[in-house]
Nucleic acid binder design. Structure first.
Lengths: 175, 175, 175, 175
DNA sequence: CATGAATGAGTCTTCATTCAT
DNA sequence: GATGAATGAAGACTCATTCAT
């Protein structure tokens, strides 16, 4: 729906795809911004749920397992709606209620932090879970994005996924 | 100038900030796309130059020195015009001549790759400079962006810079 | 509405005269060209109808009667919207859908031809109805136009009307 | 130069074709209207000269000769610059100094009237040279225009020319 | 005098928002 | 409540006109 960017998504198009009239849309949302925010929030929740589910899997025994799960989930999340995911992180003006819908990355960071704390014994002693979570979230997200947006070759041969894993595990593990 | 995104940057606003009339703008550029492309290309070149200059410094003895220089330069580059830098990587439609102006990250990646090859003896044997350059570029850029956009606290206390350094050096060094 | 020519007729002015907003206009017409074409087509149809009605009058006994009716109808038609009539024949770019709206004169020529064929016995033997219709249509139209546009004096005293009649009847009648 | 209509002829294009700078144009003409008026007046004079020359030819013995010469000259005049001729009669706003440049048809009418008076003995007694001149001028011009603009077929086989001749001679000659 | 870059009013067109039905 | 026609502000772009060089 928002494949063509915030400005590209006209209220008319949104209404049409939603199968309702513009009038109806404006009965529930005060303006375009709120409307797009709701749209985004829905997708954001879905993405966060995918990541959280992956990290909460009790089958994850080690940090390495967690990293692998996170990378896999990151790829899945990106595929939920690549364009939207991108817009979600980038294009939507960070103002008002949109900001609220925007904190996907913060929620994911929190999930990663919880996971790291649960495996604190495996981490490098100098590693602050709160900080490390930011680094890991930012890094994994950026590499997944890069792979999907510009480096499809490194994606298909699995190279970038392996590199991402190496990057994260070396960063977290005791030297 | 383009703080509000490609669509937010109206030709009128661009003209006003540039201190000329719209008419003058259209004397030199055939349409908005070309105009924005020129704007972006200028900044992109500046950014690439800053990074390349940092990595080409003959005073850099080790990979660690290079990483430090890259991180520092990344921060500087981001400050050249944070908003534009963002747009540059994200919001501009990747089509036509705009796409051409867009390959800042590829040019930076090349510069990093050159640097890594020049210091191949210091790298982990399993490290392919071409791939590692993509990872380092993506990673350093994303963390600098994150720091400036959402985590100013981690920026001011230098924490994120240190973490970025640790992340990159551990990733590149022999285990 | 289009008194000042195709270029003089701005969408804004058209909307204003029509008593609607520009937005509404664009809800029904894809662009200015289509809008003007519709305007013209409407008037063209009206004009053609007036002429056809005059020539189809069963009360017309002779060619002379028909010529008189045609001249009268031509004057009436010209008064429907003098400026528009002018544009219609002259100024509108003869391209695309506009061209379609333009063939008023051809439709009128056809009507005259039909009339002439129905009265073939009264015509000069050397008179080809198809050709004569073109001549009569062009001639009557031009004189009506001239009378209304530049020679109001000859119009008010009925002189030009009488001359037009003499011109056409002598042209058509057997020598 | 004005092939594309009054509005289509931009001052820039006119200057370019004239091989001078816009600035120079504005040194001689106060505005676009005056500029176009001068352009038109030049062509108008040329056209009037062609017609007058044809009608003043002492070799013309009869009214029929004159009509033939007029028709021929009309065709020639139309070919001098068909588009311009058209615009000249139609499209240019009939205001201000432009009106002055516009009276080609009146000057041609005068020439025809002079010719008719010189051959008054051949004319139908009911024929007022002043009025007949208007009729002939309007009629010949309109048919030439029609032939060139919409009925090229009738032009190439000479049919319309012959019809025009018949129309005019029958109109002028004693019954 | 000639030049042509600069100007900005005026055009067409889109789209968020409202409101009568 | 739902609808979608109507609205008009705002944006991209053109071109007649001016004026510094």
């Amino acid at each position: 729906m928002i494949e063509r960017g915030y400005e590209g998504a006209t209220t008319g198009r949104i209404a049409e795809r939603a199968g309702v009239s513009i009038g109806s849309l404006y009965q529930y949302f005060p303006n375009k911004e709120a409307l797009v925010a709701a749209l985004i929030e829905g997708h954001a929740n879905e993405i966060v749920r995918v990541i959280e589910a992956a990290l909460d899997d009790p089958a994850l025994a080690t940090v390495a397992d967690g990293i692998r799960a996170l990378i896999k989930a990151g790829m899945v999340a990106h595929r939920i709606d690549p364009a939207l995911r991108k817009i979600l992180n980038e294009q939507v003006p960070r103002v008002g209620r949109l900001a609220k819908a925007m904190d996907t990355s913060r929620r994911i960071t929190k999930a990663i932090e919880r996971f790291l704390r649960a495996h604190a014994d495996e981490l490098d002693p100098g590693c602050d879970p709160a900080v490390a979570a930011v680094v890991v979230e930012t890094t994994v997200e950026a590499l997944a994005h890069k792979a999907l947006a510009e480096r499809r070759a490194m994606l298909t041969n699995g190279r970038l996924e392996r590199e991402t894993f190496r990057l994260a595990t070396r960063y977290l593990s005791p030297s």
